[in-house]
Amino acid sequence: MQGTINSSLIISPKRQLFSIIKKRRKLQIRSIMNHSFKEGVTDCIPTLLGYIGIGIAAGIIGKASNLSILEVTLLAIMVYAGAAQFIITGLIAMSAPITAIIFTVFLVNLRHLLMSMTVAPYFKRFSLLNNIAIGSLLTDETFAVAVNAITKKKSINAHWMQGLNLTAYVAWILSCIVGAVLGNWLPDPYQFGFDYSLIAMFVGLLYLQLISDKTHSIRRNFSIMLIVTILVIFFMRYMVPELALLLATIIGCLTGVIIQKCK
C-alpha cells in the first residue's frame, strides 16, 4: 500500500526532464508571442500618421456636424472605418432615414469582405476567438501591411496581427476623440501634408506589393493596374468613390483570373 503511494509521488528522472522541457518550451512560446506582438506594434508605426491625420479630421467634422463627443467616440469604436464615418456624419447631419444610412455603409464597407477572405486562410490554425478579433479590426492599412508580410514570406502569426491591429485601433479612437474635443484649437490637420500621409502609404504599400509579388508576372500586374485605374475613374463618374473602388477591384481580379485561364 505504502509502496504504491510512494511510487506515484516520486517523479522519475525521465518525467522530470520532460516537465522541464515542457516548461521551457512554454516560456519560449510566451517570449515568441510577446516578441511578435511587439513586432506587430512596430510594423504599424509607419501607418500611424495616416490614422492620426484622418482620425482628427473625422473628429473635427463630427463635432462640426453637431455630433456629441460620445457619438463621435462610439462611431470610432463601433464602425472603425474612415470613409464610412465621414459618410455617416454627413447623413446624420441631413437626418437621413436610418435604413438608408445603414445600407449605404454596408455597400461602402463591403470591400472588407474581399480583404478578410484574402488574409483569413493564413490564420486558420489559430483559435476562433483570435480569428474573430483579427477580422473585427481589419482595415485597408493593416490588411496591406499583413499581405505585404505574407508575400515576403515573413512568418506572421495571430499575435503579430493583434499587435498591428490593436495599435491602429487605439490610435484611431484616440485621434477621433482628440479631433472632437480639441477640434477648434487644433491647427488644420490638412496643413503640413498630414492628409497626404495616407496616400503616400498607399503608394508605398502598392510598390512593396509589386516588387515582392512572385506569383504573377510584372507585365500582367501592370496591365491589371491599368485596367483598375481606368475602371475607378469611369465608375467615379456614376457612383460614390467607395463603390467605384469595390467594383473596379472585383472586375480587376476577374480579369486576372481570366488572363491566367487563357494562358
Partner: peptide, 11 residues
Amino acid sequence: LSYVPLCILTA
C-alpha cells in the same frame, strides 16, 4: 483572391 491586394491598393 491573389489579385485582391494589387487591385484594391491600386483602386
